[in-house]
Design a binder for these strands. Sequence first.
DNA 1: TATATTTACGGGTACGTACCCGGCATCTTA
DNA 2: TAAGATGCCGGGTACGTACCCGTAAATATA
Lengths: 352, 352
Amino acid sequence: MEKENTYYGVKEIARRANVSIATVDRVLHNRSGVSEKTKKKINDIIKELDYQPNILASRLASKKIISLAVLLPRVSEETDFWEAPMKGVTRADSEIKKYGVQVTTFYFDLNDPATFNEQAAAILNGDFKGVLLAPSFIEESRKFIRSCREKRIPFVFIDSDLPDEDNLCYIGPHLFQSGYVGAKLSTYRLKEKHKVAVVNISKETDGYNYLQIEEGFRSYFKDHDLPIEIIRIDIKDTDSLSVTRDLTRALHKDDDIEAIFVTNSRVFSVAAFLEKSKRSDISLIGYDYLKENIAYLNTEQIDFLICHKPEEQGYRGLMALYQTLVLGAPVEKTYFMPIDIITKENQAFYQN
Amino acid sequence: MEKENTYYGVKEIARRANVSIATVDRVLHNRSGVSEKTKKKINDIIKELDYQPNILASRLASKKIISLAVLLPRVSEETDFWEAPMKGVTRADSEIKKYGVQVTTFYFDLNDPATFNEQAAAILNGDFKGVLLAPSFIEESRKFIRSCREKRIPFVFIDSDLPDEDNLCYIGPHLFQSGYVGAKLSTYRLKEKHKVAVVNISKETDGYNYLQIEEGFRSYFKDHDLPIEIIRIDIKDTDSLSVTRDLTRALHKDDDIEAIFVTNSRVFSVAAFLEKSKRSDISLIGYDYLKENIAYLNTEQIDFLICHKPEEQGYRGLMALYQTLVLGAPVEKTYFMPIDIITKENQAFYQN
DNA sequence: TATATTTACGGGTACGTACCCGGCATCTTA
DNA sequence: TAAGATGCCGGGTACGTACCCGTAAATATA
């Protein structure tokens, strides 16, 4: 059993062009030292044979290593959501490590924009050939990627987008549509059709992503002519006490809220509050496959979770950099993640 | 920038064992010609260094090719469901082709068990090192895999399982739980809580998979003490006329059916029937991300689709064979696919 | 015209593994 | 005891590409 010899390599190209392998190699990597005439001749043969380099041999022979930086929120006691993207990053790393890629991870604190700036500066100081980041802080991220662009370092966004920036690509949810799905799920147990609340628990309550999600959420009710009042609740401090305080006040003001849609993974803190308040009449929808959230899904305090495959985002994000920088292959400008619906019944088989 | 030298190769092993590279190689491929003593010494060093062979170099140096067979239903006019697993197979093929793997696909007709037997025989005649198949016909598959076992050819099931057989692995849904989710979704628009129908449109109406799904479906109602009558409707002939005839009869007999759960991808033919009969009062749940099904999802004739990532099944199935046969790495015995819920709202972003 | 510099290219080795071939002991057998 | 058989092992080349180094010819400079 012999391997088919359908592939032509540099050797065949060299033979046909009456030059040495080294010269063909120079043309392939457009290094200097080849006359225009031979260069053209070789390029023609390359095209004619539809030459595909053998990546195995190429990476084997090359000694170059490529350094990539990853800039993500640190896993905190408050939420371990970012564990998942990191898992994806690690998986990608171990796959491409043998191809000469080295990944360094930098963490920032979601409650402290200054840490983002610090880490971003560290990345700019290092000699990195590409960056993967979650642009959680809008302004800080804008500043950072401006520097990247100046240094010609390609960058990839995951989880949330920053519009109008010439990033390499965005890998994450279609935020508007995600809110739209959240709205539909919110109507699942709606009876009197009075009020629903959309809750944002985050330092950055007027960021681009949040606005997009809320817009999608509202659009669903508009599109279906549902005369429902939507209460917006912003909770700037993410600790459990603040959540309890703000929610108590909000539910006191509007006691006929029938459904709550939390725009991020902190839905478990709302679930905890509702449980303590013995409010099982309010349906609760939120985001992300976290241990805490799944627990409340199982006790039916949470009705649905929406999830955007965070692990795959990390994996694909790093792979996108690998593809452009190592393989020189083009990547899609935006890659929308599926909008997965998790219930008590199907959660056991969900792939984060 | 130099590649880190964290990896030890055969050279280092040879050096430490005071033998040549060739001898290490003999041990690695447990070929003959090495004394027990040196063999043990080398194996100890291999373990100590946690030696991982460089697949790049290995496949580059090897001239062997490995042939794999794929046995799947042909895409028919009736349903193009099997396009998706084939896409996954093709994707895996193109990824591993360069590692010296050759894939040959055999198709059978879902309406004719004889074609399965023919193709199975053809595979047994060829010199294949592994088989990926969908055991759609229970008895025929049993016979086929018995021969595979005798010839020591590993086989992988996708889409549906055959219990109690020592296959390499099963990649597909947890059928019982899938039916359970289907039941929950069936209650979405239930009002009077009278009757629901579970419809099986297939030549093989008493196969293992169908029974598992129905059991899961019934269990949901039992677990939640819902006093609902479940009507079972078997439709042996899959053409549109037969479906119409059988459904007309069934709905005439039980005119208070509120929800229909179709146990496979042929839910679109039920949707077509309901549309013609102007029965938008019946909620309809079925399987798989097909063009026809999505169309009815968009017109809201179908409420929910359940999907088990058919493309990934094909991809992973082939990769499982690749892993065992080429890389010699172990694979999970069963790999349950997620039970994805598709609605009109999230369908645009579904990854089959 | 003689010398220095640049241009254009080929030879050859390395990457880590697979595997052929040949050689040196040790062991059989007559 | 000599001839062959066998067990055990090392040398060396190949896989397809990357890239260093050397060199002859072409061109520039004196």
